[in-house]
Amino acid sequence: MLGEGMLKGLAETAKNFAGSFVSKDRLTTVQYPEERAPVIENTRDFPFLVYDGADDASDEAKLAGLRCVACQICEKECPPKCIYIVKSTDKKPDYVGKPQIYPARFDIDISVCMSCQICVEVCPFEAIKMDTEFELSTTDRFGGLLYDREQLARSNQHYHKIHPTEAAEVDARLAEEKAKSEAKAKAAAEAAALKAAAAAAPKPVVPAAIEQKEPTA
């Protein structure tokens, strides 16, 4: 009969209306500032630069621990070109202890970044990862959204906290590489020692650094 479906619909909505006052399960809304939905591990929004060191390290320590070697691959690959890198003129030791170039400037304009994660995929040094922080609003839409080295630096601990599985894999890989490169360095040192014994020539530092760059993943 005409109007039957309408009455059924009205009954349904009435049930919903009354039910939402009675049963808490019906209300799925998470009331954001007070309550938060649990963060999913694969969440990502903007990149950050990983440094080895404590969470609350001083700015100098943070910068010293940055894994980035300013190779500029990410700068070239970033589709919207929102990364800006200036290489340093001097070098600092990396996590295996080799002297490396480091970024004198590393800026990401997060108002341009599209969270594609390409920079993370291309970085051979596990130096840039995706963050989960999303409360980034500011009153300055130009300067406030242009993040520099200091703002981008986050500890490896932080990385472990937000993406535990991924970070563990990365750490294992780095440890493996470190062991490998140490072994190689040892072997090289031995060879060098042998060579030095033959004809004193201190050169093995450079080849070791190049070999260490070979991606293993």
Binding site: T13, N16, F17, G19, S20, F21, R26, L27, T28, T29, Q31
Partner: peptide, 10 residues
């Protein structure tokens, strides 16, 4: 508010 409740929202 009423429409919200009908749709199980707050």
């Amino acid at each position: 508010k009423g429409l919200g409740r009908i749709q199980n929202r707050l």
